[in-house]
Design a protein around this nucleic acid. Structure first.
Lengths: 100, 100
DNA sequence: GAGTTCAATAACCGTGTGGTTATGTATTCG
DNA sequence: CGAATACATAACCACACGGTTATTGAACTC
């Protein structure tokens, strides 16, 4: 499984979206979903194994933290297609070069 | 299956990448892969059903054409994470607003 | 120490995915 | 016309995926 497969599941994308707002313990994340605790644990394991999240323990809680850098590959891949719907992007590269 | 699942397969991403360079007949695409013709046909069907490619017939050839707009959803989703590896993006939104 | 909470793992299961071979259908070529 | 080419579909198969329940193991709480 690669990063694309890891984010192909809507539940896992939702987890990442939640972590976008800050670190969360597993039981906090669970409240956002209808499936069982082991199901969440499996999703978190997949995300961990792909470096999309990291975990540290605080007492009995497992705090999960977003590691967004692993999404860079996806971002770069899809960027090749962006000119098809955004004409402004043609000039964007140059602008970025000039920025301090 | 949603768009994310459609692009979760590396072969299908490779097909899209090939179509990035221009329209291709199915048998031309097939040359880039090791799997069988029906396997390619299935991948193309998935891509068609998600609007990621379109097809027109020319004689007995089926010409496939990239429909990149369907990737916009992916692009927008991953954009939420881009600030984690690109500080310049923070100021990017404002710049885009000012562009003609 | 006993019970409770938080989370991971094990074992299992139905379903979907990606591949195959075999077949069918147009279309072109000789 | 018959043969060959291009492609899709049907039928099948091994395997991975996402879910479940049951169990286990830490770590608080009383």
């Amino acid at each position: 499984m690669d990063v694309y497969a890891a984010i192909s599941d809507p539940s896992r994308r939702a987890i990442l979206d939640l972590l976008l707002e800050g670190d969360r313990a597993a039981h906090e994340l669970l409240g956002a979903f209808r499936f069982s605790q082991p199901a969440l644990s499996k999703h978190l394991r997949v995300l961990r194994e792909h470096g999309l999240v990291s975990m540290r323990k605080r007492g009995r809680e497992h705090l999960y933290h977003l590691e967004a850098r692993q999404l860079r590959e996806v971002s770069q891949w899809v960027a090749h297609y962006e000119r098809f719907w955004n004409e402004k992007l043609d000039r964007l590269g140059n602008l970025l070069e000039d920025m301090p």
